[in-house]
Structure formats: structure tokens, C-alpha cells
Design a protein around this nucleic acid. Structure first.
Lengths: 225, 225
DNA sequence: GTCTATAGCAGGATAGAC
DNA sequence: GTCTATCCTGCTATAGAC
């Protein structure tokens, strides 16, 4: 959206603050660092936002939430191109919106880092994140998938599945360095596309979706309920 | 392991530092806070560890890694009780070791928070985490599951699946508050046990494992509940 | 709206007595 | 090994000139 430096101080502060908070976290970033990066004066944050915490909240309100709406729009846009999308189309559209479309690489890293920080160490901003984005996102997907399931479907299980899809998407983005280290595999475009394939396949068929192969022993299953 | 306050200062410092770092992150915790919590003197950290960063690293070396070994041992212990465990037994044992066994609630929260911080914002400690724990963990599971798959199995897909299992386990632990908020469901023991069931079922059959319901697109799977 | 200057405090680290 | 006292740096926030 606003990749080149915006012409007004307030927006430059928001942009640089978002980048730095995402990279290092709230406590590890100083207002000196932000104002220097935004090429503005030390006092600018207090003038425009009152204090550092309020700047942090404004980042969520004015940058994070709008971008999340962009992801949602991209997701719905992709889906509407398909006539009669099935569940796997939805999962793919969802994963793609997060991992490939809708954002530049830097925006994505930034976006997911901020979200994750709020999930793991909530501040006031977590209320914005949950009510403006996570809850609607769950609602969207649930209502899209539900029609293709029997009416007797267990809603709790469906919601847990949606969380699981989200967990994979987030993990493969934020834990990139570790994934690369363990797999000895650069995170290039080809690999990312295979990761999305994996997420779709794992969501549809679990571990047995591997290569379309069925688990040999998976045929006999004793479920302890 | 050492729930009551250890009698020597060094261990008390390590214990309290771990708790605080896990709760708030490295930058947000002051040495004053740690020494006060450990009921020791302000100068104690510098005397015993040289500086704050080295204390952080020592927490990983002396507390986090040993506990991770404990989880691994618990996992292998559970498995060895089963004769001829299948893939779902392994996944269940793995999820259980992380989410129910091996640790007290506080230790678990602490353990996973520290790990997640290193995944999202790596410091020097990430090398310890990956080489001492994540890589061996992947090796364990991969070699346990592989025999039940055809020799032609795609190793990359298998590794991605293991990451997916880990991603769910981590997510349902660290994003507890959000899960509770969205589902309007307290995270009690019963719910946690349902979450483990979900992880196993999702890993085995994906989203169609819900309620043992057959895949609506026709790829039917034998299921005995 | 932007800048300089500075208040006022909390941070990590250390020296040296015991 | 532990404690007190203290240094110095860096922090947020503000007051007031322009």
C-alpha cells in the first residue's frame, strides 16, 4: 500500500513503528529508534500519538486491521473466481491469501509477526485482533465449509479444524528459519508453493495425503473415546 | 523438577529468570526484577552469569534443554507401553507428551513460550533449540512413522507433515486465550483432552476426520469408531 | 507541526567492603 | 558469595522556542 515513505510525519511514524515492532517487539524498540527511522523528531511520537503504547495500538488500528481486510478480500476474490468451490479450494484460497497473495513479502512478515506477538503475549491490541479479524475469519470459513458437511457435524470439531489450518499457515510463515534449517531447503517460491500444496493435502487427508498414499496400518484403527 | 525455591542463589536465579523471560520476553524483563523474584542481590546475576544475555542462554542450556529431554523420554516411554503402535498412537503419544504429560501446567507454559520466542525472534539460543531438540525430535518421529509408509514415500512431504503436527500442538498451547475467546470455552482438562483427540484425528484424516464423517467428495476411508 | 533541550527515571554493570 | 553504593547510559515524556 504505502511502500514509499509517506509525505506526512504521522504516517511515516506508523509505517516505521510497525516494521520495528514486528521485528523486535514492543519493549525492545525505543521511540528514538522509531523517530530516527521515520526521519522525524524525537518528540513527534508524543505529539502525534500521546505516548509509545498508543502508537503501538494505532499501528494495529490503522495499518494491521486494514491489511487484514485486504487478505480477507483477496480470499473472497479468489474463491469467487471458482464456480462451485469445494473444501480444498477454500483451504487453498485461504492459505494462498496469507502466504502468497495480498501482500508483499515484507508486509506479510510484518503482519504475521505482529499477530503472533499478540497471540503469545497479548496487550490491549489483542481485542482488536480477535474481534476485528480472527473471529470474522472463523465465521467466514466455517460458514463456507459447513454446507458441504452433514447437518449433524460437530461444530466444535469444525472450529478446531479451522484453528489447525490457521496454525499451519502461521507456523510455516513465522518459523521459516527453523524449517529451512531442519530441511536444508531455501524458502523460495517453488518451495512455498509446495508448502501450500502440503497444507491443502494435510487438511483434506491428514498425513495419509502424502503422495496420495494410504497408511498401511491406518486401516485398522481403534479410537479410544 | 525444582518447584520449591532451590537453596542456592544460582539455581533460584535460573528458575525465576526462566519464568519471567517466558512471560515477558528478554527485553521486557529487568535484572532488578529477576533478582528480586529470586530473593537475591542485584549484583548476583553479574557475579554468577557475567551479564543478562548469558543468563538467558544459561536458562536454555540448564533448564530448557533438560526439560525437552524429559518430554522426549515421556514420549518414548508412552510408546514403549504399546506393542506395535501405529501412526495414530505415535501422534497421540507425541501430542500428549507436550500437552498433558511430562510437565506441570506452569512448566509447559514456560517451556513452549520460550521455544516460541526463539522461533519467532531468534537469538543465539535458537541454535541450541534446533540442534539439541527440534532436529532430534523430527528424526525420532520420522523414523518411527516411515516404516509404516511405502518406500517410495516423499521425505519432504513427511517432514512437512511433522512440522504441521508440531504447529498444531504449539498453537493450541500458546494461543489458548484466543481459542477460549473464539470458542467461548474454558481450557479445562476435558477440553484439552478433546483437543488432543482432534490433533490425532486431523493428522490421520484431515478435516474429514470430523466425527468420523466420510469425505464428502467421495474419497471414502474405512473408519471404525 | 516541528524542533531543541532537558527533566526525571530505570536500565545494566561494577567496585569494593564484608 | 553476598551486599551496598554508585556509575553511566539510555529511556520516555514534556516544556517551550520557533
Amino acid at each position: 500500500m504505502t511502500n514509499p515513505a509517506p509525505d506526512n510525519t504521522r504516517d511515516r511514524l506508523l509505517m516505521q513503528a510497525e516494521l520495528l515492532f514486528a521485528q523486535k517487539g514492543f519493549a525492545a524498540v525505543s521511540v528514538r529508534e522509531i523517530t530516527a527511522a521515520a526521519d522525524s523528531n524525537l518528540a513527534a511520537i508524543n505529539y502525534h500519538f500521546g505516548n509509545k503504547m498508543n502508537l503501538y495500538l494505532s499501528v494495529f488500528k490503522e495499518r494491521w486491521v486494514p491489511r487484514a481486510y485486504g487478505v480477507r478480500k483477496f480470499f473472497k476474490g479468489t474463491l469467487s473466481e471458482k464456480s462451485n468451490p469445494d473444501t480444498s479450494d477454500m483451504v487453498r484460497a485461504f492459505a494462498t491469501a496469507f502466504l502468497e497473495g495480498a501482500m508483499t513479502e515484507d508486509e506479510r512478515r510484518c503482519h504475521i509477526n505482529l499477530m503472533l506477538r499478540e497471540l503469545t503475549h497479548p496487550t490491549e491490541a489483542v481485542n482488536i485482533v480477535v474481534s476485528e479479524v480472527i473471529r470474522p475469519m472463523h465465521h467466514d470459513i466455517r460458514e463456507l465449509i459447513r454446507p458441504s458437511l452433514p447437518e449433524t457435524v460437530n461444530l466444535e470439531q469444525l472450529t478446531l479444524s479451522i484453528f489447525s489450518i490457521i496454525s499451519m499457515i502461521l507456523y510455516f510463515e513465522f518459523a521459516r528459519p527453523v524449517v529451512s534449517l531442519v530441511m536444508n531447503q531455501e524458502f523460495d517460491l517453488q518451495f512455498k508453493s509446495r508448502v501450500i500444496d502440503h497444507i491443502v493435502s494435510f487438511t483434506m487427508d491428514g498425513i495419509n495425503g502424502i503422495n496420495g498414499i494410504k497408511d498401511i496400518r491406518g486401516l485398522t484403527k481403534e479410537e479410544t473415546v
